[in-house]
């Protein structure tokens, strides 16, 4: 599949068309992979409602630093989180490849602004390893592990933790 084809496919992903994966021998993770700068990150497909193109994002005065703003999702106000600031990266520059991943976490619907959506994939569980202790810190508890799969590294994120919904 071409990259554009993948993007189109990702745009149509939602709960209904992407049911939870059937358990396979050894197990696998059903992921949606997205890019931020040079790295690839993955979150569980089950938490993703849909992927939308970026339209106008309105800044909300005095909102927390990790909030990019709000956008109009078919008449509904969707808060858009700047996940990059949580991961220690510079704020995103919106390009034609940028997407908002609409996730449903703990009964809250939020958008995550990413540089690009790369793939929806089933990754075998036995490719997942913890990252080396040396690169972790108490603040990086949102990293669930790293999938080393078909020549790529996908950093697996725990959405509840990365979106600061723990409290």
């Amino acid at each position: 599949m071409s990259r554009d084809g993948l993007l189109r496919f990702a745009d149509t992903v939602n709960r209904e068309t992407a049911p939870a994966p059937a358990p396979m021998p050894g197990g696998e993770l059903h992921l949606i992979a997205f890019g931020l700068d040079r790295e690839e990150y993955g979150i569980k497909v089950g938490q993703v409602r849909e992927v939308i193109r970026v339209t106008e994002i309105t800044r909300v005065p005095q909102s927390p630093p990790h909030v990019r703003g709000v956008t109009n999702l078919r008449g509904r106000i969707l808060p858009v989180v700047e996940i990059r600031s949580r991961l220690g990266l510079e704020p995103a520059v919106v390009t034609p490849r940028s997407r908002i991943i609409v996730v449903d976490v703990q009964d809250r619907v939020l958008g995550i602004l990413v540089d690009a959506v790369l793939q929806v994939a089933k990754v075998p569980l036995d490719t997942v390893t913890p990252p080396p202790d040396e690169v972790l810190s108490p603040q990086t508890d949102y990293i669930n592990g790293v999938a080393h799969w078909s020549g790529r590294l996908i950093i697996l994120l725990e959405l509840e933790k990365v979106l600061l919904l723990q409290a």
């Binding site: 339209t55 909300v60 005065p61 005095q62 709000v70 109009n72 808060p79 939020l110």
Partner: peptide, 27 residues
Amino acid sequence: VKGLDPTLGRPEVVSGTTILGDGRVAC
């Protein structure tokens, strides 16, 4: 008038949001 999602914190200067004629959100 649409409410403020708790994710947006508790801004002092805005009380809610709305969608304008061009589809953009305004506070």
